[in-house]
C-alpha cells in the first residue's frame, strides 16, 4: 500500500472542501472496499478523507412518506432497524445478507452503493484488464463462472451491491452533494453506468461528488417486498444471483410490481418484461415462475456461467413468491 495523507473532517462541508482542494483525494466511510483497493494498488491516492466523524451523514429517518438513510449508516444498523423492517423488508434482508458481521458493523450504505466490482481479473494486480484501462476483458473467454449473463460484451463484471436491487425495488433516490456545493437527487434507475458508456466507473458520480444518503419509498398496506440471494457459501460470500421485488396487491390481483435483479450484469437491472407477466393478474406461484422465465429470456451466458440462467429464474420466482406472501399479510 502506498502512503497517503489522512483527513478526518467533522462536517460534510469540511469533507467536501478537502475533496475539492486536494487533487485525487478519496472519500472513505467504512473503508471495507477502499482498503482492498489500496492494498491491491487498484487505487493509490495521495489523500484519503475519512467520513468517520461526519455525524450528520448517519441515521435512519421517516421523511415525507419516504425513509431516509444517511450515507455513513452501517449495514448492521440498517439490518436491525425497525423502520426498515416495516415496509422495507427487501432492504432489511439485503443488508442482513451482506458480508460478515465484522463487515456489516463497519461498511456503510453509501459505500455499498459505490463499491467497485469484485471481478477476479479486475482485482488481480497482474491483469491489465479493460476495466483498468487495458484492452482485454479476460473473463470473456477466460474463467467466467462468476460473471455476467447480461450486457457482457465489453466487460463481464457483475454488480456487487446487495442493497442496490432492494433500494431500487423501493424506488429509491440517491442524494448527492456536488463539487459545486449544490445538492441533487438521482433516481436509482439513473445512477448506474454500463461499461459501454464509461469503462472507468460504475456510477454517474463525478469527481468531488459525495453521496450523503438515500431515500426509499416503503410499501403500504397490501404491499410486500423481499430480497433473495443465492450464493455458494452461507458465511461470507458474494451473490451468484439475487433479486428484489415489491408487490402491491389489490385483493389477489397484482396492482403494481417492481422486480430488480443483480449479480448477473455490470449494473442492477429492473425487469419490466417480467413485471408485465404479473401486472393486473391474480398472483400465483405458477405466474411467478413465468415471470422468472421472462426475466432470463434475453440472457447471453458465457461458457462457464450457463447455470446462472436456471438459477436466476428460480431466484426471481422465489423473490416474487416471498414478496406476494408479505403483501397478503404473511409478513
Amino acid at each position: 500500500m502506498r502512503n497517503f495523507d489522512y483527513y478526518l473532517p467533522s462536517t460534510t462541508s469540511e469533507a467536501q472542501d478537502v475533496l475539492k482542494k486536494v487533487k485525487g483525494a478519496r472519500a472513505k466511510a467504512g473503508g471495507t472496499d477502499l482498503m482492498g483497493l489500496l492494498k491491491d494498488r487498484l487505487t493509490a491516492p495521495d489523500s484519503v478523507v475519512s467520513l468517520d466523524n461526519v455525524g450528520e451523514l448517519t441515521g435512519i429517518k421517516e421523511r415525507d412518506g419516504g425513509v431516509w438513510i444517511g450515507a455513513t449508516t452501517t449495514i448492521a444498523t440498517v439490518a436491525a432497524n425497525k423502520t426498515v423492517h416495516r415496509g422495507g423488508e427487501a432492504v432489511a434482508e439485503a443488508a442482513a445478507r451482506t458480508g460478515t458481521p465484522l463487515i456489516r458493523n463497519r461498511a456503510t450504505v453509501g459505500g455499498n452503493l459505490c463499491q467497485r466490482p469484485r471481478c477476479w481479473y479486475f482485482r488481480h494486480p497482474d491483469y491489465p484488464c479493460s476495466k483498468k484501462g487495458g484492452e482485454t476483458c479476460y473473463a470473456q473467454e477466460g474463467e467466467n463462472k462468476y460473471h455476467a449473463i447480461f450486457d457482457n460484451v465489453t466487460c463481464n463484471i457483475i454488480h456487487p451491491s446487495n442493497l442496490a436491487p432492494a433500494l431500487w425495488a423501493h424506488d429509491a433516490k440517491i442524494h448527492v452533494l456536488g463539487a459545486n456545493g449544490k445538492t441533487r437527487d438521482i433516481g436509482i434507475d439513473e445512477f448506474w453506468v454500463l461499461p459501454e458508456e464509461d469503462m472507468s466507473k460504475e456510477t454517474v458520480l463525478e469527481d468531488g461528488d459525495l453521496v450523503t444518503g438515500v431515500t426509499y419509498t416503503p410499501g403500504g398496506r397490501s404491499s410486500g417486498s423481499a430480497y433473495v440471494e443465492v450464493r455458494e457459501k452461507q458465511s461470507y460470500d458474494w451473490a451468484l444471483t439475487n433479486a428484489a421485488a415489491r408487490i402491491d396487491l389489490s385483493g389477489s390481483r397484482v396492482k403494481d410490481v417492481r422486480l430488480v435483479i443483480s449479480a448477473v450484469a455490470p449494473v442492477p437491472m429492473r425487469r419490466e418484461d417480467a413485471e408485465a407477466v404479473l401486472k393486473g393478474k391474480a398472483f400465483s406461484e405458477d405466474l411467478a415462475w413465468k415471470a422468472g422465465e421472462a426475466a432470463v429470456a434475453d440472457a447471453t451466458p458465457l461458457r462457464d456461467n450457463k447455470y446462472k440462467v436456471r438459477l436466476l429464474k428460480a431466484t426471481v420466482a422465489h423473490t416474487l413468491i416471498a414478496a406476494a406472501q408479505r403483501a397478503k399479510g404473511g409478513k
Binding site: W120, H124, Y127, T136, Y138, E143
Partner: peptide, 10 residues
C-alpha cells in the same frame, strides 16, 4: 482456479 490467459491462480 487457474486462468487460461496469463496463467495465474486467479
Amino acid at each position: 482456479h487457474m486462468d487460461r490467459h496469463l496463467g495465474h491462480m486467479i
